[in-house]
């Protein structure tokens, strides 16, 4: 269960404002990535984000580049989950592969404001926000398995080691 305070943003939050292209080949340290999370969107985020805080945004979150650091920097900054109306396919994959919970729940997005508290049960597809409860579509079991193993690399390693 993830319980955290909400940071609220709009539609089409793209990978360039999440993690600027100019850092993509010069920063390889995860901690350093986290310092630039959402840099060109909200300079307060990286400074003030608390562990398990939840990003809430509109449609098409993470559109643009394939850069995985967009998911890495948010995860490393401490965010517990992202709730959006929809996610770009690349960001969605990258987030799961990084072990960062991504929840599609348009109704909850409309309800939540900056500073609210939200409660996400990612595995069971349940979300509590603004005094209401929502069900969201759970991930298929084999994708949940990637997530539960802590991301794609540890998941693949575990499978290889079993062989």
């Amino acid at each position: 269960m993830i319980v955290g305070k909400v940071w609220k943003y709009g539609d089409d939050i793209n990978t360039d404002v999440i993690f600027p292209g100019k850092y993509t080949y010069t920063i390889s340290d995860r901690k350093e990535m986290a310092e630039h999370a959402l840099e060109d969107l909200d300079s307060e985020f990286a400074k003030n984000v608390q562990k398990n805080d939840i990003i809430v945004a509109g449609k098409n979150f993470g559109c643009g580049s394939s850069r995985e650091q967009a998911a890495t920097c948010i995860k490393e900054a401490g965010a517990g989950a992202i709730i959006a109306k929809s996610f770009s396919r690349l960001f969605f994959r990258n987030a799961i592969n990084e072990g960062l919970p991504v929840v599609e729940c348009p109704e909850a997005v409309d309800l939540l404001k900056k500073g609210d508290t939200a409660e996400v049960d990612f595995i069971n597809g349940k979300l509590k926000a603004g005094g209401k409860e929502f069900d969201f579509v759970k991930l298929p079991p084999f994708i949940l398995e990637i997530f539960n193993d802590g991301g794609l690399l540890p998941h693949t390693k575990r499978k290889l080691d079993k062989k």
Binding site: G64, S65, S66, E68, R93, N94, L152, T156
Partner: peptide, 27 residues
Amino acid sequence: VGSDSHTTMYGAVGAFSTGIGRSEMAV
């Protein structure tokens, strides 16, 4: 597949092509 979003470009010659992430390319 390519670890770059504009990998979609190879559709112009009748291929299926799409972008993937770095971890996916590592796998």
